[in-house]
Design a protein around this nucleic acid. Structure first.
Lengths: 172, 172
DNA sequence: GACAGGCGTTCCGTATACGGAACGTTCCGT
DNA sequence: ACGGAACGTTCCGTATACGGAACGCCTGTC
């Protein structure tokens, strides 16, 4: 996937999640409507200045629109849709926060990640069956679970779609 | 400090730390020498494509050249800056996810929220002292905590800034 | 139905980020 | 001392990212 296109769609996600129109964001950020329109559709290669104006208007750190193809943390699969909300890089670890949906009745297994990787989930709606492949936990709305992700683990929605936040933390 | 200038000097730092010459990096990354020279001195406003070519040639994630100068605080109190990442409305509850920073040495007390409100925290960096005002928990990097937020609770960063995700769930 | 206001897209002139080709400088090997 | 190579900077023509001004499309109001 093209870099500009992925940044564009990420910007669009953030804008729409806040219920802001393209015109309104352009006005607030001082960026031209033409620029923003073509940027969101991936037809432009934005400058740093433009990106900064937009991310500050959206109140997110600049880094949160930068998908990094070097670390393809694509969790999305048959059963899980994931949208990256934020990425935080510390001295010794990288933490990514995703908004995920597990489709009703579906199960997704994930292979072991890098050693030392851990995951957290906070379930927003529905009941999920997640965690170690041999001992997944049942987690209901408002509850939290965590597990080591350096062994195979599973995401399952036994009854009804599950909406959740997933936090993946892996050492560098 | 100007954004382009700070990114430029950060690039220069990374390049020199590797003992790579400006010409060599330009050659390896496919970026013009003129571009790189003026970029490092802060006289240019680079495009996303240029930045990406340079950071991959340096083998660092794109985000590592982006200082985040004074991230704007929206819901901030004395000790806590918070940025809303996402808001999810279910049948019986509303859940909001914030990216927060607790300033080093500072303490913030929060009054009781609506009955039934709960909060979760996942600490990204630093160590936080958070939870019920009478019994706060000590939470380190990568760890999770949760507490009932319908009683007074506290956020504290005893040593060094704390970066964290805060999830607030309140019934309708 | 006519109109006004907001939306996202497209067109267009201008500003500027881009790479290539010069340049002067420094550091070598002979 | 001299040549050659590599360095970082500056100049320049071209490509393109930019904002402003149109445009067509909806939705609401009188």
């Amino acid at each position: 996937m093209d870099l500009a296109a992925s940044v564009g769609s990420r910007l669009k996600e953030l804008r729409e999640a806040r219920g802001v129109s393209l015109s309104a964001l352009a006005r607030r950020s001082g960026v031209g409507k033409a620029t923003l329109s073509e940027l969101e559709s991936g037809r432009r290669n934005p400058t740093l200045e433009t990106l900064y104006a937009l991310t500050t208007a959206l109140d997110v750190p600049l880094s949160s629109v930068l998908y990094d193809p070097a670390h393809p943390a694509t969790i999305s699969g048959d059963a899980v849709d994931a949208v990256l909300l934020e990425r935080f890089e510390a001295d010794t670890s990288v933490t990514e926060t995703y908004r995920i949906r597990i489709r009703s009745g579906a199960t997704q297994e994930s292979a072991a990640h890098a050693p030392g990787t851990t995951e957290h989930i906070v379930v927003l709606a529905g009941t999920a069956h997640v965690g170690d492949v041999n001992d997944p936990a049942l987690i209901g709305p408002g509850a939290h679970g965590s597990w080591a992700a350096d062994t195979p683990h599973v995401y399952r929605a036994p009854a009804g779609d599950v909406e959740a936040l997933l936090v993946v933390r892996c050492p560098k």
